[in-house]
Amino acid sequence: MSGAQPRVAAPVGRKDAAPVPAVLPGTRRSARPEMLRAIGPRLLLALYIVFLLVPIYWLVNMSLKTNAEIASGMTLWPERPTLENYRRIFTDASWYSGYINSLKYVLLNTAISLLVALPAAYAFSRYRFLGDKHLFFWLLSNRMAPAAVFALPVFQLYSAVGLFDTPWAVALAHCVFNIPLAVWILEGFMSGVPREIDETAAIDGWSFPAFFVRIFLPMVAGGVGVAAFFCFMFSWVELLLARTLTTVDAKPIVATMTRTVSAAGMDWGLLAAAGVLTIIPGAIVIWFVRNHIARGFALGRV
């Protein structure tokens, strides 16, 4: 079917791109120069990607410089590249424990969110029940509550139940926006599975739990992966609640960055290196879901 779509995409990287006519016969807008037609889309994409990558490059660039070099003037690449900033992070417990703490609550949150969201999403996708639409909107409305609103009461709540400064506190607090999102995504993917499957399995004598785990889950595996990706993502990038709910023992890396750095005067190189290291887990996770990512961002609804 290649070449069947007249002009949607810039045929970047396509070896068989030639047969697509640049201008269709009878087109009203054929006055535009053909050169622009062919190059315009690629140029837009290239510019956008450069726009995305340049700020990240600048961070990487700074992380490989000494503070003396950063302060002494602009250089487009490190003149004397050094890994000293990274070495300091990996040898200083107050820095690297931040990464471990962050990963702890992120993984915990992802596990909790998925565990409770799976049956709920199944219920929403398969049944109508008393107050289902209201419940769904109430869940989603929590996604619309600014973290700033929750900061103080959540701090008091988790202090009261003795979870303050543990990964559990942050993991549970992040559930407020991750569970609704996970339910929403999973419901979209599950609704794509025909209900006849459930009915056939029931007739064949499968018990519900066995059916759910052995037959149904594998069919929505893509959705589970996408939901996990989103839980990971939103828990990993959040700062306000994570910082409010921790002081020492469970302090996440994002909080370490805001505190230590400003106390020590501006240590730009170290700050940049810590920033670069926070980008890496995200990049790894994206790589795993790259084939599902577009559908995932549409929450399974296309």
């Binding site: 990240i56 600048w58 990038v237 990049a283 994206i286």
Partner: peptide, 23 residues
Amino acid sequence: ALVVLALPLLIPWNVVGTIWQVF
């Protein structure tokens, strides 16, 4: 292209701030 596009979405928000503060 998709991986590069998704990259900014996975950066912690204060690091996004830091990147632009410096940039």
